[in-house]
Design a binder for these strands. Structure first.
Lengths: 302, 302
DNA sequence: GTCAATTACGTTCTCCGTAAGGATG
DNA sequence: CATCCTTACGGAGAACGTAATTGAC
């Protein structure tokens, strides 16, 4: 009546015998010798203090207790199998979900191709993309609503971070502007230009405000919330503007020109943030790996 | 990444660590050395190809995959425990049910005390008692509606049988009948008496019809279905009757007397019948054991 | 420096396979 | 007598414990 350590193979052996009602065939199904199989069943019965099978040398059948047990075992076996399979699938990114928050510019320029690659690699893993401003993205991360946040600047001390890429700025001006034809410009070359800024809530503006040389430029009294508006103002000839590379797609229109700003100090870091002390899911790890190689593939041109 | 044979102790170890988040304490809970415990967890992770826990030497926490698995494991562990417990309970007659069919006389005379003993021994095991005539009882047995049938005679070839007791017959007559005072009578001593029989459907009558000496007696033209009617007819002085011992309780009334019939050949066997080739449940086995000793305790007196 | 998890290594013990035994039709 | 389950016995490998090692705070 000694207690044994019930294992999946025990359950399997039991249900094989319950179904076949034949030791030899059940043993084959379990890839065991008939003798070992017999011992296995015997050990189970001993540990329970109950016969599970009624056997003569010619006939094997379940006892009433065995029948009750058979139902339970069949169910439990399936659940265990399913739990293990689910775990394997999660670990191998054959199923699961990953949620990412990204700045709108990142979401619009960088993510689409990346998500396309992701879907090719892991078609069964759901990706949820939140295109949010920096603050909102970090809030989602803090609450655990997303696994990863891609942001720029801000107070990131509560998170684990890594810089994915540093994003250069570009000058945007009218196509007929004297600077439009230049290969590159510097901040010094912008003295006298009227610069239209985004409003103070934007991460771009916050970044620019920390750069003394930008403070030295002439700021337009105009301040807008949206890049589309900014493009229209510049197109109208009301000034020029400075924007990070990833936002350039807003300015690809007739009448506007973009010129690289040759100011390494101004490049803004695009940061990947994770919750501190929290392990990433396998899917999130895989997505992160993709993020790390992706910047190499992204080179927006003028 | 080698596959292991998942056992109950593995699930237990996992859930212990998931709850305590501390290897040393979880190992204690599982009665394992901390080292063995650590290896156990490692083997599980290896076999899954997935980390279940995120550990530093100071901090242990579940990975996202581990959390998913934890829910499953907790449920499965409980179900396995419950299935094993239920089986043990069934085997030890700590729960369960047993159904018995018995002749009305057996049910009325023998069963009540026996069931009382049963309930003292196995209070949680439900007993269903069907007090049926022989034919109906065997039908219930054949259909598997009862585990055991207690009957007398009939065609029992399709069942496994054993004789529980052989029941002597008694003469029942008026108290003022000449034979009433006798210590015992024989069939020969009944010549000339008018004997009232039960109707041909009863097992008693069928049994008596196979005894030549009874055929030699003078049969009353009266035939009744019920023993109570029979008692009334005898009390009225319309004849005497022959009944098995277990039915005597119907005749314990003023004006009637019962005299042992000293005819071993007439004793009718009370038979316990089981379905052939079917194992009995533990509860049914225990009930059967009680039945086997019970006849010794039953000695109805005059 | 202490606490806690991992690694190393020798040992124990479970479990399996081969082979002999026994029961049943 | 053939089939099929059980018992006997020896061996391989899994799992455990002690002890040394590594790592974090």
């Amino acid at each position: 009546m000694k207690s044994i350590n019930w294992s999946a193979s025990d359950l399997e052996a039991f249900s094989a015998l319950a179904q076949t009602r034949h030791f030899t065939r059940a043993a084959e199904r379990c890839h065991l010798s008939q003798s070992a199989f017999s011992q296995k069943i015997r050990r189970m019965e001993d540990s329970l203090g109950a016969r599970l099978f009624e056997r003569s040398t010619r006939q094997v059948s379940l006892t009433p207790e065995g029948e009750v047990f058979a139902e339970d075992v069949l169910r439990i076996e399936g659940e265990l199998r399913q739990a293990l399979a689910q775990l394997r699938d999660l670990a191998q990114c054959r199923t699961g979900r990953v949620a990412v928050a990204a700045l709108p510019s990142v979401a619009a320029v960088w993510m689409p191709a990346l998500i396309a690659r992701w879907r090719a690699l892991h078609p069964q893993v759901t990706v949820t993309l939140h295109d949010t401003l920096a603050h909102a993205g970090l809030a989602l991360l803090r609450e655990g609503r997303v696994d990863l946040a891609i942001t720029a600047g801000g107070d990131l001390r509560e998170f684990d971070t890594e810089v994915l890429m540093t994003e250069p700025y570009w000058l945007v001006c009218r196509a007929d502007h004297p600077l439009a034809a230049r290969e590159a410009v510097t901040l010094a070359g912008l003295v006298g230009e009227e610069v239209i800024h985004l409003s103070r809530g934007s991460s771009v503006r916050q970044h620019l405000e920390h750069v003394p040389q930008v403070q030295g430029l002439r700021a337009s009294p105009l301040e807008v919330e949206h890049l589309a508006t900014l493009a229209a103002l510049v197109a109208q000839g009301l000034g020029v503007t400075l924007v990070p590379e990833l936002t350039l797609f807003h300015f690809r229109q007739a009448g506007l020109a973009a010129v690289p700003l040759d100011e390494p100090s101004l490049a803004r870091p695009i940061v990947l943030a994770r919750r501190k002390g929290r392990a990433l899911s396998a899917a999130a790890q895989a997505f992160q790996a993709l993020l790390r190689e992706a910047p190499l593939a992204v080179r927006p041109v003028r």
